[in-house]
Amino acid sequence: MAETVIAVRDLRMRYGSRDVLDGVDLEVRRGEVITLLGPNGAGKTTTIEILEGFRERSGGDVRVLGEDPARASEEWRAGIGIVLQSWRDHRRWRVRELLAHLGEYYAPYGTAERPRPRDVDELIDRVGLTDSADQMLMRLSGGQRRRLDVAIGIVGRPELLFLDEPTAGFDPEARRDFHDLVHGLVDLEDTTVVLTTHDLAEAEKLADRILVLAGGRIVADGSADALTRQVRARAEVRWSRDGQRFVHAADDATAFVRSLFVQHGDEIADLEVRRASLEDTYMQLVHQHETGSSPDPGSGFARPADVAGTGGEATR
């Protein structure tokens, strides 16, 4: 099994009397891509900032690349890549100029298998900024600026890369490019990636493992598939009969559809069975947490189903 890159036990963060993180446990292994999901204010950014060594924690054990981020060395820092949000920094610098400058800091930390920094022109090409390499930052579009942020995050060829909402403001093409880039980093360089996003499709596409953070705790941990199974949400069944449309949430969709045909036979048309998506699962997990209800299989998924039909309740 691959070596542990991040090990967190009972992480706590308290601002005044408010517990933002209330006993977070997590473990990430080399080469994994994990996604932190959670509603705003759930503590995603706080968690990432603690792991990056940008914020001191109130309690708990944290090891990242073998060191405590709160007391880590500059050598440790060289192994960490951070894609920061775009602000208005370095507005008068040009793209190539800034990447070359920031890359220089990593030069003494290069090794045979991880030469540092990356070749700047190659990197610019890889993030698709070749045509803007000599542009001043203030003249870049939002999407170009974001590509540059990603480039800055990986210029030092990090072992561990943190991305806080990396694709906010990306068009679909840029998003696709970004996903290819992350896959490349993981496959070719064994980079470990931790990212936060609000885009569930992105989480599903990129992550080996999804962690859902709600109310200062990790409430779910697993692949997108495993999470969906864990919640055992009902499937949504839609059909029409006599020109009327029906929707029903079923625990056992197969049995329900069978009974439907037994009852109505050929009158059934436009049949559709939809399994719970990651989004449904996520909504349910967060909802369960917010209402304080214990995991109750199926309960959360009743919401869109029974009210959506225009033709009233289906008969059993």
Binding site: E52, F54, E74, E75, R77, A78, I80, I82, L84, Q85, W87, R88, D89, H90, R91, L102, Y105, Y106, Y109, I152, G156
Partner: peptide, 20 residues
């Protein structure tokens, strides 16, 4: 101003970046 616009944080993200 460079605290405000994020320049300093970029420096902090690099090894010995604040010194630089």
């Amino acid at each position: 101003t460079e605290k405000e616009d994020g320049t300093l944080l970029r420096a902090k993200a690099a090894p010995h970046g604040i010194r630089g």
